[in-house]
């Protein structure tokens, strides 16, 4: 934000320019000129991103379908889709399932990412390269590949996990059948930890060494330094990261869709998968738009929850 101020004097783009305009055309150029490069990006975002968002809200009030009469000529149905949502037990189950999934994944990847970032501080270059390399590798892999890897890893018959457990004398499990939520959570944490690690590593570099030294001089233990010096000084980035990872996790589709398909028996059917099913299997586009709105609202509620918790914590 700060370096933007440098441009003011030279570019004369600010309306408060001191030199008097020489002609109307010139004034127009000066005030509109700087905006021109933004136009292509703004136009594409408006048509193909903001447009669909507004469209989703509109469609939520119609009986829009995928095929048949409801596709060609959808009717305005007011709050029918919202009423359906209120009475739809499967949707309620999907909402609570989604909240559980998101909270577990966000907690897992933030704790693991922060712990890794703390452990990686002051390590030698080789350790840093290898450890962060392995974690970030999990992040750059495409989500369908991740789903496949975890399918093989958690496979019942001689999957990697069961083979390892057997080698130390522990019984295996049909993880994807018996613990499906655990399966999608651990696969998502595995994939998402890198994001938190990258953000927390950058954040920890900004913590002033003086304040840590001061705490050490005062005789603070490692844990005390962490909780009273380090964490408070990066609290803003923790909050930002919680928000970002929550919104990312809410939108996870491909990983769950390819790993469990929402099953068994709908046990891993989060809202995005439920939305997809309502639209493409039951032909209910209008209703699935309402579910999309719920998904966004859920993001807003969770964000507000973090903001509230942080404000309370800092008091």
């Amino acid at each position: 934000m700060s370096s933007r101020d440098n441009g003011r004097g030279v570019a004369n783009a600010a309306p408060r320019s001191s030199t008097p305009p020489k002609s109307a055309l010139r004034t127009f150029r000066r005030s509109v000129g700087p905006v021109v490069p933004i136009v292509p990006a703004a136009a594409i975002m408006a048509v193909f991103f903001v447009g669909p968002i507004l469209w989703a809200v509109y469609v939520g009030f119609t009986d829009q379908g995928l095929t048949g009469a409801a596709a060609l000529n959808p009717q305005w149905v007011w709050f029918d889709n919202f009423e359906r949502l209120i009475n739809d037990r499967d949707a309620h189950a999907a909402i609570s399932r989604t909240v559980a999934y998101v909270l577990l994944v966000v907690a897992g990847q933030n704790v693991l990412g922060l712990a890794l970032a703390l452990l990686l501080q002051k390590r030698n270059k080789a350790m840093k390269t290898i450890a962060s390399g392995a974690v970030v590798l999990a992040w750059v892999l495409p989500e369908v590949v991740v789903a496949m890897l975890w399918y093989a890893f958690l496979n019942t018959r001689d999957g990697t996990l069961n083979t390892i457990l057997a080698s130390v004398g522990l019984p295996g499990q049909s993880w994807l059948i018996d613990q499906p939520l655990f399966a999608i959570v651990i696969a998502s944490v595995w994939r998402g930890t890198a994001f938190s690690l990258l953000i927390y590593s950058a954040a920890l570099e900004e913590v002033s060494p003086e304040s840590i030294e001061a705490a050490q001089v005062d005789g603070a233990s490692g844990m005390q330094q962490l909780f009273y010096v380090v964490l408070p000084s990066i609290s803003r980035l923790i909050l930002t990261n919680l928000l970002l990872t929550t919104l990312q996790t809410l939108g996870v589709f491909g990983l769950i869709f390819a790993l469990t398909g929402g099953g068994p028996g709908g046990q891993t059917q989060t809202l995005p998968l439920y939305m997809y099913e309502q639209a493409f299997r039951y032909n209910l586009i209008g209703y699935s738009s309402v579910i999309a709105i719920v998904l966004v609202v859920l993001g807003v509620i969770l964000s507000a929850f973090y903001l509230y918790a942080f404000r309370k914590g800092s008091k």
Partner: peptide, 10 residues
């Protein structure tokens, strides 16, 4: 910050 998934059907 919006989850893109949410608007795919619309």
């Amino acid at each position: 910050a919006l989850p893109v998934t949410a608007i795919m059907i619309p």
